[in-house]
């Protein structure tokens, strides 16, 4: 049969509406920009006002370089959150990556690429386990990934007895630290290139079948399953993407953080905070991956700003907590408003 099962009405369809005025359109477009971008830009301007170096290319790129691991984690967290699940294991997976890479390569530059391949395999396995346990064994992801966090942390302690062995080779550390020499802006960090590539890839993915299915599954997994969507596969893939984002973040962080058993600590919550700040709705079905990454940029900027205000770094956790509650409260208030 053709798609016109019923007589198609003459003339224009009922879909669409009259054109709004120019002013309305500008106003509407401004309103359509998510709040997180305004927040990010305000913070940028404010920081630049306090510290003019920030406005220079090198200063700004240094900030982006610093924000890149979190933004990449936020992209990974977005897929899991949008599908209606949680991933609390990414922070300890970052630690595992750094510790394992240091122990195995022990400063030998020739081992860097095999080690990176190994890290991706570890990430793939962790993501698969998270996904399979959550979907097939029906353990709530909150529990699954919390247990994974404990298991990975425990494994790191067992493996290192608390003080990681070995060192990262220089060419491994360069990925997070160095960049390509570019005339005007001096140096374009690799991490910024990777950040942009992952942002573009994630945005592309969200426009593909997979991305639309992630949102559909997070919104209503029953309806999705009854529409023939393979809910299990979609969710497992989301967990794998999240774990792989942790591997990439771990490789970048290995470059500028030291090799410690605490390098990834707390990153799972920072990533979720960033995604939520970027408008991702906990429970799934709503949000945009680019905005989630912008949430990470805003969060990093916020921490820099707090730093410039003389607020101790120890205060960051409390700030995160406040942001999570506030962002979730605003989101649920808006959803109610909308209905």
């Amino acid at each position: 049969m053709s798609t016109s099962a019923a007589p198609v009405p003459e003339g224009p369809s009922g879909v669409g509406e009259g054109a709004p005025s120019a002013l309305q359109r500008v106003f509407g477009a401004l309103r359509a920009i998510p709040v997180v971008w305004y927040l990010t830009i305000v913070l940028w301007v404010w920081i630049a006002a306090i510290n003019p170096l920030f406005a220079e290319p090198s200063g700004f790129l240094a900030y982006l370089k610093q924000a890149a691991p979190l933004a990449i984690l936020a992209a990974g967290a977005f897929f899991v959150l949008a599908s209606g699940e949680f991933d609390l294991s990414v922070g300890s997976l970052v630690t595992v990556c750094v510790v394992v890479a240091a122990a195995i390569s022990d400063g030998d530059p020739s081992k860097t690429w095999p080690v990176i391949a190994l890290l991706f395999v570890i990430g793939l396995i962790v993501g698969l386990i998270n996904g399979v346990v959550t979907t097939i064994f029906r353990v709530p992801s909150f529990i699954t990934t919390l247990a994974m966090l404990l298991i990975l942390d425990g494994a790191v302690w067992l493996y290192t007895s608390g003080s990681p062995k070995g060192a990262l080779a220089d060419n491994f550390r360069e990925i997070g630290r160095m960049g390509i020499e570019v005339p005007v802006i001096d140096q374009l960090p690799y991490s910024v290139i990777i950040l942009v590539a992952i942002g573009a890839f994630s945005a592309w993915l969200m426009r593909r079948h997979f991305g639309r299915q992630v949102l559909a599954v997070g919104d209503n997994d029953r309806a999705a399953a009854l529409s023939g969507i393979n809910v299990t596969r979609v969710r497992i893939t989301a967990f794998v993407l999240s774990a792989l984002s942790a591997v990439i973040a771990g490789i970048l962080l290995g470059g500028f953080a030291g090799v410690t058993a605490q390098v990834g600590q707390g990153l799972e919550f920072e990533a979720i905070t960033a995604a939520v700040l970027g408008g991702t709705v906990l429970g799934g079905g709503r949000g945009s991956v680019i905005n989630a990454m912008a949430g990470a940029l805003a969060l990093t900027a916020l921490f820099s700003w707090l730093n410039l205000q003389g607020v101790s770094g120890a205060f960051e956790d409390a700030v995160e907590g406040v942001i999570i509650i506030a962002a979730v409260a605003v989101a649920s208030y808006r959803l109610r408003e909308g209905s």
Binding site: H209, R212, Q213, L215, A216, D219, N220, R222, A223, A224, L226, S227, G228, I229, N230, G285, R286
Partner: peptide, 26 residues
Amino acid sequence: SEDRKTEGLTLAQSIRDNVALAWRGL
């Protein structure tokens, strides 16, 4: 299905995504 809100639709998604939902699962 009997209950379109819980079994037929993903309510927070667009008309476009809902119409394409089953097609995407093919």
